[in-house]
Amino acid sequence: MKEILEVLPNHIEHDILTITSSLEDLEEIRLRINKSVELVFHSHSYFLDKHFFTEQDAKEFLGKISQHSVYRMEEELRNGYITIHGGHRIGISGKVTLTNGQVKAITHISSFNIRVAKEHKGTAKAIIPYVYNKQSEKMFNTMMIGAPKSGKTTLLRDLIRSISDGLYGIKSARVSLIDERSEIAAPFEGVPQHDVGRRTDVMADCPKAEGMMMMIRSMSPEVLVVDEIGDEKDVKSLKEAVHAGVQVICSIHGYSLEEIRKRPSLAPLFQDHVFQRYILLDHLQSPGKIERVYGETFDSLTNNIRGNRYEMDRSHSDTVHVHVGRNRYR
């Protein structure tokens, strides 16, 4: 949270610290030009009505999160977000311009959404008996399914740490993490800021499909972890990893196993029985609660595991130009 407060305009930082008695359950801070700042908690939201978030505030904020060099954030800005020190992701919305059907620039930024990253150790302990094969001393190939803000990132981070350090009865293993959005390990200048274990190697800010193949060739992992798979390239790389003898763990956006199984791009994973375990997170209750664990044949292995109540849990063109309100950044 310290990293977020440091980049906020001073008056907003002061209001948050003054009005909010506890920030432990804070999930998002939403900044909209000429509107009150909104603090989003799991079960409610709260507006800071004392001050509006102005255009000048937006200029100052963008300068801080980009370290006063928007050029260095080009790829992230094209995807609509910036990840800052500490793994906090800041979503951006506004007007975009297109070139040949691809995003060329984000213009007239009107809103920022700061998603608060939280590191809570021990969140993965409840699922270890279901995802670790004691007989073979290896992880089951596992898919973690959850809606936005259901706690996927935090649970995945702690599972990586547990495998890497050999916790909770697991035989330690070399882990390669493809952290495309820099949310899991939160690397700063290449060094992870979150604890992902001492046997974990991280490839950050790299497309998932390419990153998986690079890590298999260069780091000889025993377990490969990737966040938020989705397209055919990701599926192909996951299958290649399994055929290379690597255990794979991934997460995916979804509300149910049935929904995920209907996605055409994922069909090869189910047809070839790539995964032996499916972890479904409960999106209606507290973040981090596990609703159900499924086996390879989609049978329910258990119901209502008591998970820890924590979360936090991202074309090619030339240059991105960014404007805040009527003012332009390049």
Rank of each mutant, 00 (worst) to 15 (best):
86 G>D: 03
34 N>Q: 10
64 K>V: 04
54 T>H: 04
25 D>G: 14
94 G>K: 08
53 F>T: 09
28 E>D: 12
49 D>G: 11
23 L>Q: 13
37 V>W: 01
81 Y>A: 08
73 M>G: 04
65 I>Q: 07
62 L>M: 15
43 S>P: 00
66 S>N: 05
103 V>G: 07
18 T>M: 07
80 G>Y: 03
27 E>V: 09
90 I>P: 04
84 I>E: 05
73 M>K: 15
19 I>C: 06
46 Y>C: 11
68 H>M: 10
37 V>N: 02
45 S>H: 12
39 L>Q: 05
35 K>N: 12
54 T>F: 03
41 F>A: 03
97 T>P: 01
56 Q>F: 06
97 T>R: 12
59 K>H: 09
93 S>D: 04
100 N>H: 12
71 Y>D: 14
95 K>N: 10
16 I>M: 06
28 E>C: 06
45 S>M: 10
73 M>E: 14
59 K>C: 12
99 T>Q: 15
67 Q>D: 13
32 R>A: 09
26 L>W: 08
23 L>R: 11
38 E>T: 13
66 S>H: 00
86 G>E: 02
74 E>I: 08
46 Y>P: 05
43 S>T: 12
52 F>Q: 13
28 E>F: 06
16 I>V: 09
19 I>E: 10
15 D>Q: 09
74 E>G: 11
18 T>N: 10
42 H>D: 07
79 N>G: 10
21 S>I: 05
97 T>S: 13
92 I>C: 08
66 S>Y: 02
84 I>M: 03
78 R>H: 01
29 I>S: 06
20 T>N: 02
60 E>P: 01
66 S>W: 03
104 K>D: 14
58 A>V: 02
102 Q>N: 12
26 L>K: 03
21 S>N: 14
68 H>G: 02
39 L>K: 07
81 Y>I: 00
69 S>F: 05
25 D>N: 15
91 G>R: 05
65 I>W: 02
35 K>L: 09
64 K>Q: 12
104 K>F: 03
33 I>E: 07
31 L>M: 08
49 D>V: 13
70 V>A: 06
100 N>G: 12
37 V>P: 04
44 H>C: 13
88 H>S: 08
39 L>F: 00
53 F>Y: 14
88 H>V: 02
41 F>D: 07
90 I>T: 07
42 H>P: 12
48 L>W: 00
46 Y>D: 11
22 S>Y: 05
96 V>E: 08
66 S>F: 03
80 G>H: 01
83 T>W: 01
78 R>L: 03
22 S>F: 00
85 H>F: 06
89 R>H: 03
100 N>Q: 14
42 H>A: 10
98 L>M: 15
72 R>Q: 13
55 E>T: 12
102 Q>K: 14
105 A>V: 02
35 K>P: 03
32 R>S: 06
31 L>Y: 09
79 N>D: 14
19 I>D: 10
59 K>G: 05
85 H>I: 09
87 G>Q: 07
83 T>L: 09
74 E>N: 15
98 L>K: 00
64 K>R: 15
48 L>K: 06
42 H>F: 07
48 L>D: 05
84 I>Y: 08
42 H>M: 07
68 H>Q: 12
71 Y>L: 11
80 G>E: 08
80 G>W: 01
38 E>A: 13
86 G>W: 00
16 I>G: 02
57 D>G: 02
57 D>T: 06
80 G>R: 05
30 R>Y: 00
104 K>N: 14
104 K>G: 08
33 I>T: 10
